[in-house]
Design a protein around this nucleic acid. Structure first.
Lengths: 221, 221
DNA sequence: GTCTATAGACGGATAGAC
DNA sequence: GTCTATCCGTCTATAGAC
């Protein structure tokens, strides 16, 4: 998996990452102590610092491990579609699916931890912690730029700034779709969580596309 | 303001709440210590426990102080519209504006702290902390129920469960509109934050309405 | 690589004088 | 109501034996 020259025991390292992922998702970064992580992973406390150095670096690695794959997968789908289209603009629905659908399909993988990770990611989007922010921005930069310009070619009548905003709104809707506070409705006798996960993707997709293609707000002020 | 029998100095109490609001927004609950709060508020450390008891109760009061007003304002607008309509269903756009527009107008109040609070709220939506969750659910219950049934009457051809989901997605988009990770695009030479705040409301509104009225996902499986 | 033990700072909460 | 001083627990990180 990794080509570090120092071939560490993959077991300990991965168990730490898996435990940290779950606990960060459930309790946040500050709400999760090294001791909680090591006791869940059943490794020694000092092992974390041995393998990752500091808590901050551990957090980074929790993200990097999955985010690299996710964004590579997104770009790969986009590459493929653009190659097939041969210069013609793509349909917005296919671009949206390549970005948000890929993430949602990762979130559907409950056993492999994809679901946990996407919950964590959704939560982290609104965490203004400085260093996490910086790190995510770097990890996302390439991928986001590719998708924004694909959308701009697909919707030439829409200003780039408008597309940026709508991409932002779509990200928020997706974050909530995965990790949002479903419990808000429980008191109304309703629930959003005990639903067939298979239907989430089409539900979200039609919402996102409706929003993306909505009439533009009133003329330039 | 408050009719507690113990008439405490309003100054100290409010200064603590104001300081806590900002710091919770910037650093989260676990990332904010009592000492950070009291030193920002320029009050004594023991004053927090004197006025609020525990940190948890302080957190609750930070939310309760503004959320009660916000949700009352939302319901008041809805009441007014329903009274004028005299039994006829309302336009979805007016319902959406009553709920999300009211929040966004609160978020436009930067000096009075409304902006800070809405950022905090957006962040807290994805904070799975058990007791905050419970508290928010109770605070929201009445208001959300009112708006969901108003939407259901306005869109009788849409299943209630579908409306619930779309309300959820809309909430996510709004949370990001206010407090989301705008910095994700900065590396692409773009920005979503240095924009005219006056234009946010119409931008978000057309996106939300586009999503709400989007064609329903494929037939029942 | 893995362990024990501990340093050293900081957390929430409180006792008790004024 | 406001203050100082302090209890006591937990935190991250590291030193050093094995």
């Amino acid at each position: 998996m990794r080509d570090d020259s120092a071939k560490t025991s993959p077991d300990t390292r991965s168990r730490i990452l898996d435990a940290a992922e779950v606990l960060f998702m459930e309790n946040g970064f500050d709400g999760t102590s090294m001791r909680m992580i090591t006791s869940r992973a059943e490794v020694n406390l000092a092992a974390v610092n041995y393998h990752f150095g500091t808590k901050e670096l551990l957090i980074q690695e929790v993200f990097r491990r999955r985010l690299t794959d996710l964004n590579n997968a997104r770009v790969a789908v986009l590459d493929q579609m653009e190659a097939e289209a041969g210069g013609a603009p793509l349909k917005p629905s296919r671009i949206v699916d390549a970005f948000f659908g890929t993430a949602l399909r990762m979130a559907a993988d409950v056993d492999g931890g994809g679901h946990t990770f996407m919950c964590l990611l959704g939560r982290t989007y609104t965490e203004p912690n400085e260093f996490v922010r910086k790190f995510l921005a770097e990890e996302y930069a390439e991928c986001v730029e590719r998708f924004l310009s694909a959308l701009y070619r697909a919707l030439p009548e829409v200003e780039l700034k408008e597309i940026l905003w709508r991409f932002h709104f779509m990200t928020g809707a997706m974050a909530f779709a995965i990790s949002g506070l479903g419990g808000l409705y429980e008191l109304a006798g309703l629930s959003v969580t005990d639903d067939d996960p298979q239907r989430l993707l089409p539900r979200l997709m039609s919402f996102l596309l409706g929003g993306l293609r909505a009439p533009l707000p009133g003329a330039n002020a």
